[in-house]
Amino acid sequence: MKVEVRLLGPLEVHGPNGQVHFTGARRRAVFALLALRTGKMVSRSALVDGLWGEDVPPTATKTLQGHIAKVRKALGVDGVILTREPGYLLDVTQVVVDVEEFDEHVRRGDYQAALRLYRGEPLADCPVEGWASAEIIRLREAVASAEENHAAALCLQGRYAEAIGQLERLVALYPLRESLWDLLMDAQQRAGRPGDALRTYRRVRTLMIEEFGMEPGDALRRREAVVLSRTGSKAFST
Rank of each mutant, 00 (worst) to 15 (best):
K2D: 13
V3K: 00
E4H: 05
L7P: 00
G9D: 01
G9L: 01
L11F: 09
E12K: 04
P16V: 05
N17Y: 14
N17V: 14
G18S: 03
Q19W: 09
F22E: 00
G24E: 06
G24H: 11
G24A: 06
R26D: 08
R26K: 09
R27T: 02
R28Q: 14
R28D: 13
A29Q: 06
A29L: 07
A29I: 11
V30C: 15
V30W: 09
F31M: 03
A32G: 07
L33F: 07
L33S: 02
L34H: 03
A35T: 04
L36M: 01
G39E: 12
R44E: 15
R44G: 07
A46M: 13
L47D: 08
V48L: 08
V48K: 05
D49R: 06
W52Y: 06
E54Q: 07
E54A: 07
E54M: 08
V56S: 01
V56L: 05
P57K: 04
T59S: 15
T59H: 11
A60V: 06
K62Q: 12
T63K: 02
T63R: 07
Q65D: 08
G66Q: 08
I68M: 06
A69T: 10
K70Y: 01
K70E: 02
V71P: 03
K73D: 15
K73R: 14
K73Y: 15
A74T: 07
A74R: 15
L75D: 06
G76M: 02
V77R: 04
V77N: 10
G79P: 13
G79D: 15
I81T: 03
I81E: 02
T83W: 10
R84D: 15
R84E: 13
R84H: 15
E85Y: 11
E85L: 14
P86T: 08
P86G: 09
P86N: 10
Y88R: 04
Y88E: 10
L90M: 01
D91C: 12
V92K: 14
T93Q: 09
Q94H: 12
V95F: 09
V95G: 04
V97A: 00
D98M: 00
V99K: 02
V99I: 05
E100A: 15
E100F: 09
E101W: 10
E101Y: 11
F102A: 01
V106C: 11
V106A: 06
G109A: 05
Y111K: 11
Y111N: 12
L117C: 03
L117F: 03
L117P: 00
L117V: 03
L117E: 01
R119E: 05
R119S: 03
G120W: 08
E121R: 10
P122A: 07
P122K: 04
D125W: 01
P127R: 05
V128D: 05
V128E: 03
W131M: 02
W131R: 03
A132I: 05
A132L: 08
A132T: 09
A134I: 05
E135I: 13
E135P: 07
I136G: 01
R138C: 09
L139F: 07
R140Y: 09
E141C: 12
E141L: 14
A142C: 11
V143D: 04
A144R: 02
S145C: 12
